[in-house]
Every structure is written in structure tokens, then in C-alpha cells.
Amino acid sequence: MTCGPSRWSGPDTVSYVLKRLGQTVLTAFLTILTVFVLLRLAPGDPAYNYAPPNPSTEQLEAIRKQFGLDQPLLQQFWTFLSNLFHGDVGTSFQFKQPALQVVMDRLPYTITLAIAAIVVTTIIAVPLGVWMARRNNTAPELGANIATIAGQSMPDFWIGFVLLIIFAVNLSWFQPSGFATWGELVLPTATIAILQIALISRLVRREMVANLAAPYITVARSRGVPERDLTWKYAFANSAIPVVTALGTRFAAMLNGVVIVEVVFKWPGVGALVVDALQRRDFPLIQATVLVTVILALVVQLAVDLVYPILDPRVRLGEASS
């Protein structure tokens, strides 16, 4: 294969990466700004949640001062921004520790769950999707098709509860909550994976069906290339791109979206933390969580976009990215 200019070199690519980085920073900033403002506009008095029961006006004022909530909104935002540049996202009202620390302490648990779910999803969904594509328009495929539709239709908290009832309460195979041993990973992962497998396998099937019907496959088949090679080396190779993109996007979404599963299974991750923090109006903790998860999700997406040229040499970064 002749080597032309590397697909990653050149001013186009560099400017593309810079542009994307800039967009990432901008999106993260706007998100934080929105969250910041919304939090302070929402009704509810954070001081009340951290005051002694039946607090007097004086006590509430003292707490508000301690949290810096008595200052005007712009002032608060300015303080927040200037602290942000020093890497200080504020001190959690509830834990009295740097909010960033609290989030980073619990982030690995969420990441574990997300990774486990993605791995299981990939292992099952990809072969399933390919099988469904090969057997397209046959009766067994219809069954699988309906099953995957069912899989993506069930509410995740319901799946979680049903699994809990069957396996934890009645059969007692697993503990219903917390993360004391590796065994507890099974049920939450299964809950997430059912939905993701359904979605990804359908995507794989869609792409594969389209690719398998393409003229070049027919030509290759007529040249005598074996079916298995056609399926995997030709059609699948071309389908890999949207699938990898989807997996990457799903992973990023999972970092934001395992909240419900974490609540149902009482997983010590970031999702449950933020729901709790929202109820208690722990502003710094909510802000820190949003900041971390948004940046993480954007970084993953950026990584997926950068991996593109490896997967498809026809893609040049910076062009046709619409």
C-alpha cells in the first residue's frame, strides 16, 4: 500500500483537534453555568437542610454565610470561577470536604459499572447482530427481532427490580445492594446490558444488512470468497465504524445515565450521589459532579472521533464532519 501523507498530519487535523477541544471546553462551561444558575434559582433553602432541626432565623443566616450563599448571584459565580482556576470546585455542604474529592472517590465505581456493561454488551450484541443480519427475514430472526425490541422497551428500574426479586430476594444468589463483593456487579450490569444489547445488536444488524446487500459483496461472492470471510472481513469491517461510534457514545451516555440503576441497586457511584445531593441542595457537590461527568463524556466522544481515521482511511478529519 502506497503511503501518502499520514491521515493524521497536516494543518487540517491539528486545527480540527483544536477546534474540537475548544468546543469541549465551551460546552462544559455552558453546562456548568446553566447548572449553577438553575440551582440558585430553584426554590428550596439549602441552609435548612444542614441546620439543626427547627432552626431559628439566626441559625439559618449563619449557615448561609458559611456556605457563601448570602452574596449576590454574580459575586457567587465570580468566586466559583476564580476558585475553579485553582482546581477548587467548592466544599461539599454535606461532607465538608472538597467536592471534587468526594466525586473522584465515587467515580471509579460508576466507571466500573459502565465498563462492565459495555464489555458484556459488546461480547453479546455484536455476534447477535451479525447473526440477525445473516438470517434476515427468516422466522428465527423475527423472534430475535421482537426480543430485542422488547429488550429496549422495558424501563430500566423495572428490570432492576424484577432481577432483584428473582435473584436476590427469592433465590438469594446475590446481595441486593451495595458493592461489597464482585458478585454484586452482576445484577446492575445485567440490568444495563439488557437495554444496550438490544440497541447495539439492532444497530449492527441494520448496518450489516445494508452492507451485505451492497454490490461489492455480490461481486466477491461470485469470485468464490467464502461466506464467513464475506461476513466478517468485508461487511463487518465496514460496519465497524458506526458500531464503534455507537459504543463510544453509549459509554459516554452511560457515565451520565446509570443514575436509575445506581439508585435501585444502591451502587456507591456518582449517579446515586448526585440524586441525593440534589435533594439536599448540596450545590458544590452537584456542580462538581456535572463538571466531571460532562468532561468525561466529551473526552470519550472526542477520543471516538479521533479513532475514526484508523478505522476508515477514507475519512479525513476536518472535512465533511456534518
Partner: peptide, 10 residues
């Protein structure tokens, strides 16, 4: 794009 990266539920 921005909406996809937001913590939607939150």
C-alpha cells in the same frame, strides 16, 4: 451535540 453530552436526567 451538546445535549448528547449533558447529564440528561440530572
Amino acid at each position: 451535540e451538546a445535549q448528547m453530552s449533558l447529564p440528561l436526567l440530572l
